[in-house]
Amino acid sequence: MGNHLAVSASGLIKNFGGRRVVDGVDIAVPKGAIYGVLGPNGAGKTTTLRMLLGIIEPDGGSRTLLGHDRPRDASDRVGYLPEERGLYPAMRAKDAVAFMGALRGLDLKTGRKRAVELLEAAGLGYAVDTKIRKLSKGMAQLVQLLGSVVHQPDLLVLDEPFSGLDPVNQERLEALILAERDRGATVLFSTHVMAHAERLCDRLAIIAGGKRRFEGTVADARGMLPMRAQYVPERDDPTIAQHLPADARHGEQGWSFEVPDGGVEQALTRLIGAGHGIAGLSIERPGLHDAFVRIVGAAGQDVANLGKAATEQDA
């Protein structure tokens, strides 16, 4: 692995029950970056992460983690939040965090001290001595997340970390991810919620149908789609359509259309000449959600539910 990569994989393959769930995935995660693995539910994200961590072995391909060909050799330098959450309900919050650190080689005294500091920084100082069973689901999830960073890992791997969190705790989690990156850690997380990826990721991969369909920056993904213009006329009537590109659509906010290769000037000149005028005009690059739907849809996935799958939070 190159010295600039924290995680790399080439041609990862995994079969379950005669079905190929990961089919030749390549991953390259730069050190110190926040890297997102995106995809609809069932795309193979969790299986890919587990192969990268050495929890399960691939049926083909290779992977390297923090310089080790055998990922488990670097386990003490990794923090991991699995998709399936689980804490001992009788433990106090600070003890649960310290215990998870101890599993990665951190002594309990240091772990408890750091646990209190982390809980207070996350706005959970009042819950330091509260037993896990008395915490809400979202609070318990944050406690488990803090347990995955208490030993100050070089690599933090989070599988669908935002699932089940309310907006306040989502903000706390985003702040923690940024703080870990600023500390020097590499953060690798999976999600099907585009908003978090768009705000956080330095780079990302989109997986659909077990294959990697895209890799690059958020700007790279958004740049795959043309910009769109939103036009509001001073005088609106059906004849406007004849002066706009063929894909123009009329809505409550005016007219929307893809910006032609030559720009919008010709269309605007025609509109002004016809007396429709310009009450408003904006030009925007499509968001990551739009790029995600285009990329995954092009991969032959079920596009009908992608909008919902890409934006909704799990209950």
Rank of each mutant, 00 (worst) to 15 (best):
residue 226 P to H: 13
residue 128 V to H: 06
residue 240 I to C: 08
residue 182 D to Y: 00
residue 139 M to Y: 14
residue 177 I to N: 06
residue 281 L to S: 13
residue 64 T to F: 09
residue 146 L to H: 09
residue 102 A to L: 08
residue 68 H to E: 14
residue 255 W to P: 02
residue 223 G to T: 04
residue 190 S to M: 08
residue 43 A to T: 04
residue 166 D to P: 09
residue 194 M to F: 06
residue 277 G to I: 01
residue 7 V to P: 10
residue 117 E to Y: 02
residue 140 A to Y: 02
residue 147 G to C: 13
residue 226 P to C: 11
residue 312 E to K: 14
residue 277 G to L: 02
residue 70 R to M: 06
residue 192 H to G: 10
residue 68 H to M: 09
residue 10 S to Q: 15
residue 225 L to Y: 08
residue 116 V to Y: 01
residue 256 S to I: 13
residue 140 A to T: 03
residue 237 D to F: 04
residue 147 G to I: 11
residue 288 L to T: 03
residue 280 G to W: 03
residue 49 L to I: 15
residue 181 R to F: 00
residue 42 G to S: 11
residue 311 T to E: 12
residue 275 G to D: 01
residue 27 I to C: 06
residue 310 A to V: 01
residue 224 M to G: 14
residue 194 M to S: 02
residue 290 D to R: 09
residue 162 F to T: 14
residue 302 D to T: 01
residue 183 R to V: 02
residue 193 V to I: 15
residue 297 G to R: 00
residue 13 I to P: 02
residue 70 R to L: 11
residue 232 V to Y: 05
residue 125 G to V: 04
residue 194 M to N: 02
residue 149 V to L: 09
residue 47 T to I: 08
residue 249 R to C: 10
residue 173 L to Y: 03
residue 207 I to R: 05
residue 290 D to K: 07
residue 307 G to S: 14
residue 177 I to H: 02
residue 30 P to D: 07
residue 49 L to A: 07
residue 302 D to E: 12
residue 54 G to P: 11
residue 218 V to S: 06
residue 220 D to W: 01
residue 245 P to R: 11
residue 290 D to A: 15
residue 267 A to Y: 06
residue 4 H to Q: 14
residue 49 L to Q: 03
residue 219 A to S: 13
